[in-house]
Amino acid sequence: MTDIAVRMVRDARRSLAWWAIGVAALVWVNVIFYPSVRDSPEIEGFVEDSPELMRALLGGRESLDILSPAGYLDGQVFALLVPLLLLIFAIGHGAGAIAGEEERGTLELLLANPVGRRRLVGEKLLGLVGLVAVFSAVTWLSSWTSGLAVDLGVSAARMLAATVAAGLLGLLFGALALAAGAATGRRGPAIGVPAALAVGAYLLMALAPLADWLEPWRVLSPFYYYASFDRLVQGIDWGASAILALVTLVVAAGATVAFDRRDLKL
């Protein structure tokens, strides 16, 4: 019962290869400069002088020493770069999973086979999990190897904790794309809805520390449960991981219900 998921991953192998090269290169380029940045005297002053808002938007915290190994790795790689790439990747493939096949027209022949609509959503979600897992594995491998190259001093386990959190975050937004596509059958909303939600959620998380009235609402942002700097310092957070995974499952359940009820747009 995994043929469709396997097919989805295999069909994405070319896209996956390019993404892997891209993310590995970006991680390496960022990490490899750690020694020269650490040793340059102007940086610290620059961070101290930069406005609070800008630091907030770039994922920094007031107390965060961006020149510590974990702080640097977070600021350069995990705070913004990795989730951004993962979200684009996961939303793209989530939107393609059902809405893409429906717009192209291949869905009609696929569903001529004895495959129920719920099974289709389930297998597409499974395929998405596989794709995000490969992407995350590449991210982790390139962080770990580039970290070794410059003697960064963040353990592989801590990097894995941050990568798993990023993967769960990407998966959630990929599942939203899958669900929006399953509900509408169109790629436009399948990409637009989760992308808009992601921007909103990021802003909510980033700006909450600056406005008292926003502060209590940040628990609604998936980025709140991502907290990559904490992962790099403390390791995995099972509670936050469970929340992200649970919301993903709820979104997928919504996708099956919506998909099961409607007419296909053929």
């Binding site: 291949t106 569903l111 495959v115």
Partner: peptide
């Protein structure tokens, strides 16, 4: 019983779209 039906049914769509790759 759509899944059980499709197991025993062969369908050729009028607008046939195949996996190109």
């Amino acid at each position: 019983r759509s899944v059980a039906i499709r197991r025993r049914l062969g369908y050729l769509p009028g607008d046939l779209v195949l996996y190109e790759r």
